[in-house]
Design a protein around this nucleic acid. Structure first.
Lengths: 210, 210, 210, 210
DNA sequence: CATGAATGAGAATTCATTCAT
DNA sequence: TATGAATGAATTCTCATTCAT
């Protein structure tokens, strides 16, 4: 007699799975990988440590999933920005502002994308998801290059550089995070300008001569 | 009759201290903080674990020292580049090329500067040294801004972005490091261009109109 | 659906906690602080070392608890003796006999109260509990002084001296503990007499003259 | 050719041996066994750790020697007091005052006599020397009993009790050692009275009736 | 002989994972 | 199915003792 999961039960399972993900993300965002022990995640999710292993086969798998979900989220936002109207520059800026806003909420989570986690298995997953995010940026850059708005460049590399620059600027000097809303705004704008400059054509001596 | 440490012995001590540092650096460069247990460092240095503690009071202190030495090295090079002749752009490019060259030797070491280490005490040291390196880049940018070569900008932030961009571009995709010397050269040149663009004035529509 | 700890499980937990305490006490009693490593306690308690840390946050806390429980036990007995009927002298003797009896069971445990343990944190706890025991003796002495049975004296100091005298007499010559029940009885009676003399009024030359 | 130690050399050896003993005693007196690592002793003695092993075959032997020397010193003083004139009571009081004075200088050293040291080998030595000191007290008590000044009693046990009482009173509550010279004097006098009472005949109801 | 650097066997503590209830 | 107690391997750090110089 095959066991058939009721819809209700399936919903509860999915729900728990998501709560675990959320708890893990919250902990990383707040304190980094260091604080993300399975017991802490379980407590934050309102479950037992044993139950974690019903939903995720190991700590590494759980965090791979969490990073993946964060990347998915990032990419969905980038895609919606990308498909919105406006100039390529506007869209790139919107993307940067959006990334920055989230990074400032939970600097450790953004950092976790660059961070070497304790579990070796996580490492390749981190790289993979980081590349996916970079690819989303690259799509915007490619469009800009195709449209002649941005100069010819290695857009794959430029996208990686953008992600690195943003992350470092936002979560590197964790200690001195901008305190006031105004400071935050200024910081985000500075990063925006940096990113835009970095992928735009330079003024050349020839321009100056003109 | 006070014991006088012979020059030979002193040399051995200094040597050991350096060998421990080197071993630690080597291990980080090759496998990241994860592999850098004291036992592994001791073995790599050809000493016992107990001996490590004669030279460094704790694991944290050892790694603080290692990061500091790496930062010192980096900064010395940047300074010698900075004080060399040539245009500011040339010097910035030289700096980027130099950083890139070293990062490609040991990607994990460069990465370690961005990485959250296991020991909390190390974290602030990491941040501090990272800022020192950024400050050295900033000095070059400041000179460029003062000379009108680079446009007005938040040079502190730009320096951090440069470091983030370089590190991500160089050590992020660890797995697929460029295999041939030619690929490497191309990668470094692309990064160079990105960095130079990022701090230089953009060509504006007005330029185009000219 | 919150998990409710079953009475059975709770009993097991309490039991384990007590078994750990007992194991620690047994080891101290048998071999002193020296033998009381966490691994030894775990083995004696029939648990793994890791489990010890579920019940006590550190070695120091465990032993503080053990000393505290021993002191509590001592004090409870002293209080029940103190509140019993009979003369103050009888009660003091009963107290000494009771202390002596227990000390002869596990000389090292009594000794442990006077002993400098390896963990510095334990030291202040040891002092504190020793003072509590002395205070219980002092209460008996105070009553005796108030009733004119004992002469005026610094009862706090006298109580400390009693504890010191008993402990030294009982656990000092550990090696040659009295073998036969008869020898033990004689020893206890001698200590009793010493203690009673020590807090009672002396016969003065004037008495002799009478 | 048999090696013959020059007198000069022998003197130096003896001197070093004594300096090591002194250093060890100083460290125990100041901080207890806990601080008495071989390296600390060597530094305090102005020698190398290696040299310690030329004079004492092991840490245990060194501390056995130190305890023995302390006991010797104690006993010499007691003997000189014992052979001096005056009543037995006066001599006992002088002995107690002398012990108390020294214990107040270095409470940890007195404590060390009762303390379970870290090295098992030390344990029996500690017991032995403690008994020697007790025996010296016993000699005074025996004389008192023989002369009818003190009542019949187990003088061996009483001596042990005296040592225990003094040590506990003097070095037990280390933390609240008397601060002023006046407090110290009062403390010593209280102990004196306790000790004297403890070995003297009690006033009996019959005395009171008289 | 003296030196002090080197050794390495412990000891405490942490935490992912398992499994009886 | 959910629970959380139990496990035990792994890791850092200490210190008596040895031995090349």
């Amino acid at each position: 007699m095959a066991y058939r999961r009721s819809a209700r039960m399936q919903a509860r399972l999915d729900d728990n799975r998501q709560r675990i993900r959320d708890a893990a993300r919250r902990i990383i965002a707040g304190g980094g990988f260091r604080h993300a022990q399975m017991a802490a995640v379980a407590e934050a999710a309102g479950l037992s440590t044993g139950s974690l292993y019903r939903y995720f086969p190991s700590k590494a798998e759980l965090f791979i999933d969490v990073l993946g979900a964060a990347a998915d989220h990032e990419i969905r936002i980038l895609e919606s920005i990308g498909s919105a109207g406006g100039s390529v520059q506007d869209r790139l800026q919107a993307a940067v502002r959006s990334y920055a806003g989230r990074a400032l909420e939970g600097p450790h989570l953004a950092h976790a994308f660059m961070v070497e986690p304790v579990e070796p298995e996580l490492d390749s997953a981190r790289q993979y998801h980081r590349k996916r995010v970079a690819a989303a940026y690259r799509a915007i850059l490619d469009e800009g290059v195709a449209g002649g708005v941005f100069p010819e460049q290695d857009t794959g590399l430029a996208a990686a550089c953008l992600v690195g620059a943003m992350t470092e600027a936002l979560s590197g000097p964790t200690a001195e995070a901008p305190a006031t809303a105004d400071e935050r705004r200024r910081l985000v704008e500075s990063i925006c300008r940096f990113c835009l400059r970095a992928v735009s054509a330079n003024r050349t001596p020839a321009d100056d001569a003109a």
